[in-house]
Nucleic acid binder design. Structure first.
Lengths: 230, 230
DNA sequence: CGCGCAATTGAGTTATATCAAATACGGTGG
DNA sequence: CCACCGTATTTGATATAACTCAATTGCGCG
């Protein structure tokens, strides 16, 4: 299942300092001297779509920065049902909650090809003691996660199905760099919105017939932002 | 509306140090010397039920610790609809997001008689610079909020109405100190679960008929935890 | 080219919303 | 203390939305 290809592992964080997306990640505020403190290896790992990064209730010794790709966070209900509670993208942090509890609150599954940096908890702990800048970066991620959770409640769990699918597609579209975006499977759409796969399919098929939604290759899609109802 | 009775205002934080619920609040880890840094007044304010502590998008210069009572956080949708995204109780922090953005993400309304400590942002900022212990306290609150948000998504926005009402009542019951709990209005239950007031009423009325839910005076209630389906 | 999974579609059922009316309740003033 | 008023809650009948189940089609991959 977890078909990870361990790429460039290296000691310490020499390359973090020159990382192409450093401005987007946790270490954006750090100084040269801060990086010198880091002696544990920070690995750069590639995942195929559908890989499990970690499971709910897993004991965690790492957090993960998303370099590229999308990851869904899934939570299971006592009755076996599940709900996708967030989708995280570039620059966001996986397993942030485990920094305090050592335990993962969610199952994290990649949606498309994903590259992650795996950061040992001990690195974060060390930086927290010596590099005050890290605090704001962590808080910012907590805040973004909470905003997204609230959005999930108000926009994606409220109202008629057609409205909610619209909101989801618009959200995916806006968060994308170009005018196309990753189109989740109908099953995932169902688990994001708390509806059945069939209902998700009926609405997306209708949007396609109306020409408001166009499916492209590679699980991507494009929407007409003016036609979709909010 | 906002009928606040400003109670004991005082300079600095002499009384914070000896606060009866200090172990529950943001300042639990602070030392004597930390309190000496605080020179802005931290006011203790009482609110009647239904008072607006602050509005969505308000410019914020304070955060609020809940000394007692319950506060609902409400968010409005573009179409005027609303959803209650959280209910906060003793020891929790209102307006935590405004520490970074200066703007409130929610409207905060008291459910029952509430006592809050109003803490200027500047106090938190100061402590963040000089008293590292405050960071963990803040992170812990972010984490608790996020856990609650996820619970709202998975437990309270997923499944049939009867199940969701059950989960809500059980949740309220478990979070209560004694075996009774604050019973929200049917309208609030609707806005918590994303259902209509009538549906909320029909289910709660049914629970009452079955003897699984007993209404007490003072908007309190009691449930038979074994009978309510999860 | 065919296989297997994902997506779509349709018919029938069930759950929930809607609309309207009746009842219960709490607080206020006499 | 009681009657009254306004609001919250309950209830019922009906309309609509969503789910369920089953069958079919479409699509990517070997």
């Amino acid at each position: 299942m977890k078909t990870t290809q361990i790429g460039n592992a290296w000691k310490g964080a020499e390359r973090c300092e020159n990382c192409a997306i450093r401005h987007l990640v946790l270490f954006s505020d750090l100084q040269k001297s801060d990086f010198d403190q880091i002696h544990q290896p920070i690995d750069d790992i590639s995942y195929k779509p559908g890989s499990i990064v970690y499971g709910q209730s897993d004991h965690m010794e790492f957090v993960y920065t998303i370099r590229s790709g999308l990851v869904k966070l899934v939570q299971y209900l006592p009755d076996g049902n599940l709900r996708i509670v967030r989708i995280l993208g570039q620059g966001e942090l996986l397993g942030i909650e485990s920094l305090n509890t050592q335990v993962a609150e969610h199952k994290a599954i990649t949606l498309d090809p994903v590259q992650l940096c795996r950061i040992p908890h001990s690195v974060i702990t060390l930086l927290q003691q010596n590099s005050p800048g890290i605090h704001n970066a962590l808080i910012a991620r907590w805040q973004k996660m909470l905003n997204m959770a609230d959005l999930w409640i108000t926009q994606l769990s409220t109202g008629k199905i057609r409205t909610r699918v619209s909101r989801l597609l618009l959200l995916l579209s806006k968060n994308s760099l170009d005018d196309t975006f990753y189109m989740p499977t109908r099953e995932d759409i169902g688990n994001i919105l708390g509806i059945t796969t069939e209902s998700a399919s009926k609405v997306t098929a209708e949007f396609k017939r109306n020409g408001w939604l166009k499916l492209l290759e590679n699980n991507h899609a494009q929407v007409d932002e003016n036609k979709l109802e909010i």
